[in-house]
Design a protein around this nucleic acid. Structure first.
Lengths: 188, 188
DNA sequence: GTCTATACACCGATAGAC
DNA sequence: GTCTATCGGTGTATAGAC
């Protein structure tokens, strides 16, 4: 159960963390921008670190939810992968702050606050998808962890690019199509 | 001119920033680990931000220096690109902290402390290399900025992977060879 | 250039009334 | 659950002796 005030706190924290960094934004400012008292913030989150981790988990959860929207076992592997690819890029384009926050968090010492099991729990399904593609000889016979980081960073790069040129919808769709082909060509 | 004490300050700052983040490491701790007094740090760098930016520029400079080591106009475009690719990955593997620091800096609000002209000054030579490859019809006819982010993020991903599996020298060389082929296949 | 000592603002977190 | 008030601790930066 997430109350209204709690939502406001997370919303303000996201905006401010992206703007000024984790340590660069005092809890007092988060509370002020969220329209709540300082003490209220610490009622919901015992420490500032806990707030940061909660925000990260919340955003990661929303992305994961969206990611597999529309995939179906009747479709081919390539079609499903493309749906996941497009879902991720579209989500990133529609949630720039969230995506930037995740990147910031991932390349910060705060990442160590997430338990390794939690990370591998989130990663495992993706590795399994790649494994099946290798088994079916769709993908090259490379370590799946290697393909995973390449795929991930390809998506990061595309998000950056899309963010920078801010294309129209049609152009964005074309870009996603084209870059997926590049990726596909690389891995098959 | 960079004095000994100044070097020690930069060295300690790098280690601590990687460990605890920018705001997570007080200047007092940097001074202590560097074996200098607190005031000495502020003698060399007027503010903490100035120290962070100086460290970033210093590291970026060293990477850029190394990057083009061994390239020659007599070699083919592909050979030269591969040299740059391998130089970058080897440098990253030999300077894990430096590389991590750069990534951390790039995905932080501190990046805005670098003037846009400074950034484009560093990026321009690379874009020109890509442009010439497009002109010679070696690479696909895609926006060079797109290829640049893909190339960059490919390298980031590979660095992560190499860091994680910590391969022997022979295996690392093989990995660099193979992944370069993947990249080449994608862009041509 | 390097040190010691310190100003003083600010931050995370708590206590306790409502 | 939400607020106000506040404490203890810490951080950046400066002043001034050597």
């Amino acid at each position: 159960m997430v109350s209204d005030k709690q939502q406001e706190i997370l919303k303000a924290a996201l905006r401010l963390f992206v703007e000024s960094g984790f340590h660069g934004t005092p809890t007092s400012r988060i509370a002020k921008e969220a329209g709540v008292a300082n003490g209220t913030l610490f009622h919901y989150y015992k420490t500032k670190d806990e707030l940061i981790v909660a925000l990260y988990s919340s955003i990661k959860g929303k992305l994961n939810e969206r990611m597999h929207n529309g995939t179906q076992s009747e479709l081919s592997f390539k079609e499903n992968l493309k749906i996941i690819y497009a879902n991720t890029l579209n989500w990133a384009a529609e949630h720039k702050e969230e995506f930037y926050f995740v990147q910031q968090f991932n390349t910060s010492p705060f990442l160590s606050l997430i338990a390794p099991e939690e990370i591998s729990r989130q990663t495992k399904p993706h590795l399994e998808i790649l494994e099946s593609a290798v088994r079916q000889k769709i993908f090259k016979n490379l370590p799946v962890e290697l393909m995973f980081v390449l795929l991930n960073n390809h998506i990061y790069g595309m998000s950056q690019y899309i963010h920078n040129i801010a294309p129209e919808d049609a152009q964005k769709k074309q870009l996603i199509d084209d870059s997926f082909d590049l990726l596909w060509r690389m891995l098959t």
